[in-house]
Design a protein around this nucleic acid. Structure first.
Lengths: 218, 218
DNA sequence: AAAACACGTCTTGTATACAAAAAAGTTGAC
DNA sequence: GTCAACTTTTTTGTATACAAGACGTGTTTT
């Protein structure tokens, strides 16, 4: 699907922004990127436009594109919306989730547990992502699933940050268990509440982390 | 903001798709559009890419772009997500809505009522849009507001269709009143339930409409 | 006659060339 | 010495030129 050069470049640029190569506020020069990727400006521009629409960078007409630093307030808002979307997913999933999907959630959680014991943050993160993706899928609403994946992906770097907090991995694990239990019981409201809390906590932890690290960042 | 020619063209194309000039499945030829808008292919391509990402058209590599017909199932899913997003908005809004915003909602509803009596579907639609925009805004979550506006805009042509059903305008009006009442009472859950129902009904009506008009459309 | 291969055309994707606008640097006047 | 206007330079936005893949058609071969 992503056959076009510009699409590949867009993904590359996204990774470069996520891993901090291009920090917030940095200008993305078209010709520099063109030489860097050994292509002309055309695919670069298309890639930048994609990133603009997805909200990762900001395009100021006749001025250039700059990587957008979402700002603490906006990030908290995004976590709040994520929590609500996941709550909807869980509520819908509780009504129709299949036994094999529950098994999948449980085995994913087991692998999560192993990652926690091995202090493997990356491993935990991978399994955590899988866990949530399963819930989205089990909502039975493909559009909702896509929207959840989109927002989840957008919050990825910030979510990752918050996971580094002391004891957060273990706490997150326990929350996952509660979610699976509620889903298994077919209790949509409980599942929704559990996952909403799970994500809301992420937002709060992130908020705490940022406000302590950068006391007065603009 | 939308200073670039490609941005203007994107909006134009969107309107042309919405009003049916380009029906579902139609191919959007780059050179034809270029001559039509008296520009080169470059801004056309940028505009088409924007529409692709927003989901209005589908881009098949090396084949061209085609206006996407979302399909009944997907549309119902989108209405479901819309209902939930609006429910979240209303729940949040109930806690913090200001008196002047309530006044605004009420006056908007009054203009709605006038439009109903005048059989003015367009007028009703305009005020209806305003009504919902106020609720989004009053959620206090800017990101949520943007997401709601985005989805609302995407569902616009289909919502419009469903409003043509007999008695739907009056029914919709009553639902609006119930929403305002719940917001005024500060009852978040009631407001959420009311607006969720309000939007869910739209999806159901739309579903009914489509399945009766096109009994076996693929 | 049917199938397969090759060629030609058409369309997308990319590169380059050009135009316009904004930023920066310079010069001149007060 | 400072401010302002003009020029230069840099960079975005658009047009055009070029390349490469996909589809159709026609011919050839079995």
């Amino acid at each position: 699907m992503a056959r076009k050069r510009s699409d590949i470049i867009a993904d590359e640029l996204e990774s470069l922004i996520f891993d901090g190569t291009f920090a917030g506020g940095a200008r993305l020069d078209e010709v520099q990127l063109a030489t860097r990727f050994s292509v002309s400006r055309t695919p670069i521009r298309e890639a930048l436009q994609r990133l603009t629409i997805s909200g990762l960078v900001e395009q100021i007409p006749r001025r250039g594109v700059f990587v957008r630093q979402p700002g603490l307030a906006e990030l908290v808002e995004m976590f709040e919306v994520m929590a609500e979307l996941e709550a909807v997913s869980a509520r819908l999933a509780a009504r129709r989730i299949a036994e094999d999907a529950l098994d999948d959630l449980r085995s994913t959680n087991r692998r999560c547990q192993l990652a926690v014991e091995a202090q493997d943050a990356d491993g935990y993160y991978r399994e955590n992502e899988r866990f949530h993706a399963i819930v989205y899928r089990q909502s039975g609403n493909t559009f909702l699933e896509q929207e959840c994946l989109r927002l989840h992906h957008r919050l990825q770097p910030f979510r990752r940050l918050q996971l580094r907090l002391r004891g957060r991995l273990r706490q997150s694990m326990a929350e996952h268990e509660a979610i699976v239990d509620a889903l298994e019981a077919g209790d949509g409201e409980a599942a929704a509440a559990a996952i909403r809390k799970h994500v809301a906590v992420q937002g709060e932890k992130f908020h705490y982390l940022m406000s302590t690290l950068k006391p007065a960042a603009e």
